[in-house]
Amino acid sequence: MIRAPALCLVALTLSGCTAISAIERASEPLDVHELRAPAELPAARGMQDIQLVVEVPAAGGAIATDRILIRTGATQLAYLPEARWSEDAPVMMQTALVEAFLRTDAFRFVGRRPLGASGDVALVSELVDFGARETTEAGGAVVEMTLVARLVREDDARIVASRRFTGASRVPDTSTRALLAGFDQVSDAVLLDVVEWVLRARGISATAS
């Protein structure tokens, strides 16, 4: 008659320890990782006298966060437990795109908002995919990114160009370091493609990156 309540007490105690441990881990700070503009970018041979506005990419709820997305199945999602982004992923991408276009010296103004009531051209985009998933290869993973971009003329909201950009980077294992390196690589490749595409769409010649 004593043993059953005692076992219940042990079970409750262990359960409580697990809960306390989870709470304590939840308060641990995560390493912060920032994605920046690619190191190598094309340099424009001439500057256009227009304002380029880079809007925050739209994104689904699983991506629109500062947590680093890991796809564990066809419909199952998780987040990297040891690191996070410096900002919500779409805002971080906007920051990287603004930096990249500024460094090309192709436009009189590049920013998140126009100088006046409206800009001349806006880069409107959607971050469709931005995460890592395990592969069938032992211990390996692939980091994937898909960005749908549109150049919009602001005076009449006309889409003057659109394109879907995709990139993938295979990494040898699922360690935090390897995954973050994969995110760096795929982000650099996609953002470089976006910059080169915008320059071509605007008829701007540039030196090779």
Results as ranks from 00 to 15, higher is better:
167 G>Y: 00
108 R>H: 09
69 L>M: 03
155 D>L: 05
91 V>A: 15
185 Q>A: 15
18 T>P: 01
99 E>S: 14
25 R>N: 14
124 V>S: 13
190 V>G: 09
129 D>G: 03
38 P>C: 05
156 D>E: 03
13 T>A: 15
181 A>Y: 01
104 T>N: 08
184 D>C: 00
11 A>C: 14
8 C>L: 15
39 A>I: 13
81 P>S: 03
166 T>S: 11
161 A>S: 14
93 M>R: 11
72 T>G: 02
201 A>E: 15
14 L>V: 15
122 A>D: 07
208 A>Q: 09
102 L>S: 09
70 I>K: 00
126 E>A: 14
4 A>I: 15
182 G>T: 04
142 V>C: 04
91 V>D: 11
15 S>C: 15
10 V>R: 01
159 I>L: 01
97 L>A: 10
160 V>W: 01
114 P>W: 03
158 R>C: 01
160 V>N: 05
179 L>S: 06
19 A>C: 06
39 A>D: 14
198 V>I: 11
162 S>F: 02
43 A>D: 07
207 T>I: 04
88 D>V: 13
129 D>R: 15
138 A>N: 08
203 G>N: 08
128 V>P: 01
94 Q>A: 05
36 R>V: 13
136 T>Q: 10
116 G>H: 01
97 L>N: 06
49 D>A: 15
67 R>Y: 04
151 L>G: 09
66 D>N: 15
45 R>C: 02
62 A>R: 11
171 V>A: 05
57 P>Y: 01
129 D>Q: 12
42 P>D: 05
208 A>W: 02
189 A>D: 14
58 A>R: 13
16 G>A: 10
147 L>E: 09
14 L>W: 11
205 S>Q: 11
95 T>Q: 10
27 S>G: 12
161 A>I: 08
133 R>T: 10
14 L>H: 04
